[in-house]
Each structure stands twice: as structure tokens, then as C-alpha cells.
Write a protein that binds this DNA or RNA. Structure first.
Length: 336
DNA sequence: AAACTACTCAACCGCCACGAC
DNA sequence: AGTCGTGGCGGTTGAGTAGTT
């Protein structure tokens, strides 16, 4: 290829992998496990750079790789996820078992992206007329009318499809470092510091819990955005909660329970993808900042106002045949 | 059959985040 | 706080293949 080699070491093989190289790599990893990619080629006896080995394993040799054409369901999910996440291929791939980010990226670039753009062009032309949606995704036939209140932020650079109906959730660097909880007994705000979410938990050193925190916390209604008290202006706080269909039933969760290991990005995305946004978002606050202020003592910043483009998010995240989800995972999350 | 074009996708690159020191 | 090593990610490339003329 026309680029300079990624590895300065000479004498390394480049380009397509041979069957023998595949076998060596597969055998080595089955014996020693993956990781330590830098040293792997030398130990395994491969004339490849570590990055190349890693890529080959992850994108091709892994035993759980799913081969074959991408199904219509997967296609629909990719489109929905891309609308939600933008080009976060690894996250999208994480929702499609057996598919790799590279495969999805390629599929998007060669198939879906073009199709979605075409649909967008068509629908934007038709949106000149009143009562027409400019949603660029084919509407599921069974989609009920919604009155969702969708939480949205402005992250215009993430998606090539960033029209007024695109909702993107900032997912990169989704480290949960600070959360806000409503105290169950006093309804005052309790702050909770949490270190890296994937760290070993149950380790007291890994968390700094506000001394005033109650043993149990009451999470505020889902879908509510709170402003960040941090330095990063781009920070957003996404409020979600585990609850039944009755929005009055706020679930109590012990703080120690909350500190257990969880993948914030995963939970957040899982909630978004598997939740009924009408239930999540319709918590009776009617987009009122004053209500938020009453509850939490401040109003959300302008960019975190509730967005009324609710149908779009639902269509982008809830499959047409998806049953009403009643027990959504809940966390309030601050993305940094 | 040959030449050309369009498409696919494995592989590569540069960059970034993060942990260790 | 700064540096270094490593792993991971998204963008891009180009060899190989399929389709068309």
C-alpha cells in the first residue's frame, strides 16, 4: 500500500495473512490468551507487528465472529444505532453479537450510508410539504403516535446525518466520575464520586462517597438532564432510572449497589435501546425548568433543554416489534 | 476475451486514552 | 506533572473481485 509502514522494524510481513500465519496466531492465542500484542508476534514466531496481529484476531480469527450477510434486522439496528451514536463503530458492533466494528463500518460505507443519504434526500424534499416527516429512516408500520419528551444535546460534529431530527448520545470517554442522586429521605441532592467504572469494585479506595449520602437513594425521574458542575462545558448528565410503568414509583437503590461494577456506556446505551421513551421521558415535568429548579436547585443549561423531537429518537431506538419495556435500567450518568 | 469500471473488505495508519512509572 | 508503553478506535487505502461494455 502507499503508506509508510506502521512498524519501523524491517522484515515484517505485510498485507494479506496466509493460512499458516492464521494458524500460528490462533494456536498461540488459544494457548496463551489474547493481549500483550506488542510481544505476541515475537513469542508466537510471527513476522507481523502486534497491531496487525490484534486486528487479525479481532476482525477475523476470533471464534465468535459471525460470518455471512448482515440480516435485515441487523441492518435496521445498525441504522438506528448510527443515528443515535454516529460513527461509533465499536459501540455499534457491541450491540451486534459476532459482528466487528470493521465489518459494520465497511457495510455502512458501502451500503447503508449511501442508502440512508438517499432516503434523507428524498424525505427532505418531501418535507417541504406540511405534515410530512423528514425522518430519514423508514418508519415502522406499527409505530404508535408518541408524545415523548426526548433529552437531547448538541453534538453537531458526530454524525454526517446531523439534521434536526438526529439525536446523538455522546458516548466516547463515557467515564462515570460523578453522579447526582436524590436522597430518599430529604429529597436533597447527594453527590457521589465514582472512579473508573470498570475498575475493581468493592474496593473502598476506588470510590469516594459523600459522607452525607444515605444508605438508599431515590433517583429522580428518568430522562431528566442536569447541568454539570464540572469544568467541562460539554459535560452532560443523563438521568435515567429503573422504574415500572408508573412514573411515580421511583425505585430505591442502595448506594453500595450503585457502586457495583457496571459499564456506564453499556448501561446507558442499553437503556436507550431497550426502553420505551414515552415511559422514560413522560415524567410529568412538562419540560419545565422551574420544576427542575424546584427539585434540584438549579436549571439545566440551555443546551440541555428537553427536546421535543421525540418521535425521532423513538423511531431510532425502539424496533417496531419491540414490546413495551417496563424495567429500564437506571443510572444518572455524567459523561466527561 | 479483453479492457474498463464499480464495489468490497481486509489491512493499515495516525491519533488518542489510560495506566505505570 | 511529565513521559512512555500499550491498547483501542475511526478514517483511509488499495488489492482482489464482480459486473459491464
Amino acid at each position: 500500500m502507499g503508506r509508510s509502514p506502521c512498524c519501523s522494524k524491517e522484515g515484517l510481513n505485510r498485507g494479506a495473512w496466509t493460512a499458516q500465519e492464521d494458524k500460528i496466531l490462533r494456536d498461540y492465542i488459544s494457548l496463551h490468551g489474547q493481549g500483550k500484542w506488542r510481544n505476541l508476534p515475537q513469542r508466537a514466531g510471527l513476522k507481523r507487528c502486534g497491531k496487525s496481529c490484534r486486528l487479525r484476531w479481532l476482525n477475523y480469527l476470533r471464534p465468535d465472529i459471525k460470518r455471512g450477510n448482515i440480516s435485515e434486522d441487523e441492518e435496521e439496528l445498525i441504522i438506528r444505532l448510527h443515528k443515535l451514536l454516529g460513527n461509533r463503530w465499536s459501540l455499534i458492533a457491541g450491540r451486534l453479537p459476532g459482528r466487528t466494528d470493521n465489518e459494520i463500518k465497511n457495510y455502512w460505507n458501502t451500503n447503508l450510508g449511501k442508502r440512508v443519504r438517499d432516503l434523507q434526500t428524498i424525505s427532505s424534499a418531501s418535507s417541504q410539504q406540511p405534515n410530512e416527516t423528514n425522518n430519514n429512516i423508514q418508519k415502522p408500520t406499527t409505530m404508535p403516535p408518541t408524545t415523548n419528551k426526548v433529552v437531547s444535546t448538541t453534538t453537531p460534529s458526530l454524525s454526517p446525518l446531523n439534521d434536526s431530527h438526529s439525536l446523538l448520545v455522546r458516548t466516547k470517554a463515557s467515564k462515570c466520575s460523578k453522579s447526582l442522586f436524590l436522597d430518599h429521605s430529604s429529597t436533597t441532592t447527594t453527590s457521589l464520586q465514582q472512579n473508573k467504572t470498570s475498575s475493581n469494585n468493592n474496593n473502598d479506595n476506588s470510590h469516594e462517597l459523600d459522607e452525607t449520602a444515605a444508605d438508599h437513594v431515590l433517583l429522580p425521574p428518568p430522562g431528566l438532564l442536569l447541568p454539570s458542575n464540572g469544568d467541562n462545558n460539554n459535560t452532560m448528565v443523563m438521568m435515567m432510572m429503573e422504574m415500572g410503568t408508573n412514573s411515580e414509583e421511583y425505585k430505591e437503590i442502595s448506594t453500595t449497589e450503585l457502586l457495583l461494577d457496571f459499564d456506564v456506556g453499556d448501561i446507558c446505551l442499553h437503556s436507550l435501546l431497550n426502553s420505551d421513551f414515552e415511559d422514560i421521558c413522560d415524567f410529568g415535568y412538562n419540560n419545565s425548568n422551574s420544576n427542575c429548579e424546584d427539585l434540584f436547585g438549579f436549571s439545566p443549561p440551555e443546551q440541555m433543554q428537553l427536546d421535543s423531537s421525540d418521535e425521532v429518537l423513538k423511531e431510532a431506538t425502539v424496533p417496531s416489534n419491540f414490546p413495551d419495556e417496563t424495567n429500564n435500567i437506571v443510572q444518572n450518568i455524567q459523561f466527561l
